[in-house]
């Protein structure tokens, strides 16, 4: 569903070149939920922009559903970390969710159905007529998530979406994402710097090295599909996986090669 082939990104400044991403190759199957973790400053955001078609990679290619990405693909939606800056303050919650659908030239009834369904799915049915600035941070990010879902994407990209919300809201939003993923059967790529979050959410965790970035490790998360903040996080297997991802990230920071590349 999502193919990333040898993506490299070099930023060329006046007198120096910065290689942010060296060589990234991975593949997400249809309906998969994968998390990308890496040390801070490892080029996660650069990678996201390349996948989203906002940035052209220096070499390599990205394919969504077999089609090469040259600009933002139609069947992909993105949730950014800065929820406050990715919502239109002058539009209501409903207006924010509906805007991309107008551009999709959907009928009024269809738009209304999608908006209502998406807002209900994120638990904001009662706030449709509010403005984003009247809501808390967590609720604002729910609006951005509702907008992404109403767009009916086949691939959902999330760039550290919960980095700026408090811990309790974060736990709620993590469960929300798993619920939505199961309900709407999308392919989800979730970028985060939080190891616990990556293991808790994903079916698979891709560990990135520090910049210039390569895939350091690919960990399959063999936890049961029904996850729960309390029981899953205290599960023996969860702790093992968490430790493994953690040590890989330490290795990545110290510049060592993966102990077991692409192991599962």
């Amino acid at each position: 569903m999502l193919d990333v082939n040898g993506v490299q990104k070099i930023y060329r400044g006046k007198d120096r070149e910065v290689e942010a991403v060296r060589d990234l190759t991975f593949r997400l199957e249809e309906g998969e939920l994968a998390c990308l973790v890496g040390p801070s400053g490892c080029g996660k955001t650069t990678l996201l922009k390349c996948i989203a078609g906002l940035l052209k990679p220096t070499s390599g290619s990205v394919e969504v559903a077999g089609k090469a990405v040259t600009g933002p693909p139609r069947d992909m939606s993105v949730v950014f970390q800065e929820y406050g800056r990715s919502l239109f303050s002058w539009l209501t919650v409903q207006g924010n969710v509906e805007l991309p659908l107008k551009e999709k030239k959907l009928s009024k009834e269809r738009r209304r159905t999608l908006v209502t369904e998406a807002l209900e799915a994120v638990g904001l049915a009662d706030s449709a007529r509010s403005y984003p600035w009247q809501l808390s941070g967590g609720m604002q990010q729910r609006v951005a998530i509702a907008r992404a879902i109403a767009y009916e994407p086949r691939v959902l990209l999330m760039d550290e979406p919960f980095a700026a919300v408090d811990a309790q809201t974060r736990a709620d939003l993590e469960d929300l994402i798993r619920g939505l993923w199961q309900r709407f059967s999308m392919t989800v790529l979730f970028i985060t710097h939080d190891i616990d979050e990556a293991v808790y959410l994903g079916q698979r965790v891709l560990v990135l090295s520090s910049s210039p970035t390569v895939v350091q490790d690919d960990v399959a998360v063999d936890l049961p599909a029904e996850r729960d903040q309390l029981t899953t996080r205290s599960d023996q297997r969860f702790t093992e996986l968490r430790a493994r991802v953690y040590s890989e990230i330490q290795n990545a920071k110290n510049g060592q090669a993966a102990s077991a590349p692409a192991a599962t």
């Binding site: 078609g53 906002l54 933002p72 939606s77 800056r85 990715s86 239109f88 551009e103 767009y151």
Partner: peptide, 16 residues
């Protein structure tokens, strides 16, 4: 720029 990127991702262009 984040809002501009949001518009690009969701294909909001032209007059809108």
């Amino acid at each position: 720029p984040v809002l501009a990127d949001t518009c690009r991702c969701y294909g909001v262009r032209g007059r809108r």
